[in-house]
Amino acid sequence: MSSLLYLSNQALYQLQNQQSQSIDCHAVSQYKKNLQEIKQRKQWKTTGTGAQFMGLRNYDDPDELAHIFPVDAVLTNEQQIIYAARLQDGCAIYIKSLAALEQPESLVLRNNEFIVHHLDYDTQNQRLILSASKGYAFERHLCVLGLDSSRIQYITEGDCQDEHPCFDPENPNVVYYDSCGFAYDHQGNVSIGPKEICRLDLKTGELETIASDPRYDFYKPKVGKNGQLYYLKRPYQGQNYSGSSIKDILMAPFKILRAIFGWLDFFTQRYTGESLKSTSGANPAKARQKSEEELFVEGNLIKAQKTLQQNQNAGEKFAGVIPRNWELVQQSASGEQKVLKKGVLSYALGADDSVYYSNGKYLVSINADQTEQMLVEAKLIHKIMC
């Protein structure tokens, strides 16, 4: 088996001889280190009785590092990794040697104006296609970036989310991707429509819908041998979100109240010896159990334990936590659809007619003779590269 990489739990891993090891993404680790150093330099402002008196106690933000992680990666023919990282409201794209992981990385792009969500690589023209957005905006559009240039060329637009682009290996001027529209209501909330698979010719601008049904999401397309198209299919569930401006407005009062609470808590402890912080409340063990049983995967709520049991009852050899109506589909050039596997979160096409997939619990290979082999246990792998 050739090199196999995957993204799980906001980290990049390499699988060799059924042994998994994490790959350090320098852009991510260095950014976190810089944040920590800045925090330590400013720590004197929020420590001591003077800071407590002024209500400037040091409250760690649990979400501070939540938006710093590798978001996607691709393998090149030169045994290199091109990965994109989210750095809070910005992004970075680097090239890393797979043969010598300790070597310095090469910078492709650093930008603080938009965030990269997905990418694919065109070996012939040495260019990337990206799915990107500006900050917390819901729009996600496709753009092309050459490895030898920092110039971004957008190729899609509108009130839509264009994601998971991939080049046709036989014709790199053709791109497949999934897209869905959305609409705002008068309160700023966003309603997301069903995903469909699109085919875009970069030379002519011709756009064609390949797979579409208002009852389903079609997403994460890939092109295999003989022009066969692969993608994932699941029942469409209408999703509604609050706009980013609403989020900022709602979060501001909580930040103010937190400062006031710290100031009151200081005086309460000083004169009564007791804290305002309650020691009672919900049982943390029960809360933890609930979080383990209920997962939000790509905006969909999954009852993990219940789904695992259902997959086991269905006779799955390596049962996972993804519902069986999340299907890996193969579509021929004539449009005929064939379900290859049920309960799939992500997948990759191997060079030897093999398929690799994640069911949310395991990474499994389907060989050319349709036999399955469990490669590694890893939770919620959302991207596989080989």
Results as ranks from 00 to 15, higher is better:
S3K: 04
Y6V: 03
L7Q: 06
L7S: 07
Q10L: 12
Q10V: 03
Q10W: 05
A11K: 15
L12I: 01
Q18C: 01
Q21N: 13
S22R: 15
I23F: 00
N34F: 06
Q43Y: 11
T47Q: 14
T47I: 11
G48A: 08
T49V: 13
T49R: 07
G50A: 10
G50E: 02
L56V: 02
R57W: 00
P62H: 12
E64W: 10
F69Y: 15
P70C: 10
Q79N: 08
Q79E: 01
Q80S: 03
I81T: 03
L87N: 04
Q88R: 07
Q88A: 09
Q88C: 04
S97A: 03
A100E: 02
L101D: 00
L101I: 01
L107H: 01
V108I: 15
N112T: 13
V116P: 04
Y121G: 03
T123G: 04
T123P: 08
Q124L: 14
Q124N: 10
R127L: 12
G135N: 08
G135R: 12
Y136Q: 13
R140W: 05
L142Q: 05
L142W: 10
S150Y: 06
D159I: 07
D159L: 15
D162Y: 03
D168C: 15
V175C: 09
C180T: 04
F182S: 01
Q187K: 11
N189P: 00
V190D: 02
S191K: 11
G193W: 00
C198V: 10
L202A: 12
T204C: 07
E206Y: 10
A211Y: 02
S212M: 06
D213A: 06
F218C: 08
Y219T: 03
V223H: 01
K225R: 15
N226L: 12
L229R: 05
Y231R: 01
R234Q: 06
Y236T: 01
G238Y: 00
S242K: 14
S244P: 15
F254A: 12
I256T: 14
W263Y: 08
F266E: 08
F267V: 01
T268M: 01
Q269K: 11
Y271S: 09
Y271K: 09
E274V: 08
E274S: 09
S275C: 07
S275P: 03
S280L: 10
N283G: 07
S291Y: 07
S291P: 00
V297C: 10
N300C: 06
L301S: 08
Q305L: 05
Q305W: 06
Q305I: 06
K306A: 09
Q310T: 05
N311T: 05
Q312L: 11
Q312S: 07
V321E: 00
V321H: 00
P323R: 00
R324D: 05
R324K: 06
N325T: 00
E327W: 00
E327Q: 15
L328K: 08
V329F: 03
Q330K: 15
S332L: 12
K338I: 07
K338D: 09
K342H: 07
V344Y: 00
D352Q: 14
S354L: 04
S354Y: 04
Y362W: 06
S365D: 05
A368E: 14
D369V: 06
Q373C: 06
V376M: 05
E377R: 11
H382D: 15
I384H: 11
M385G: 08
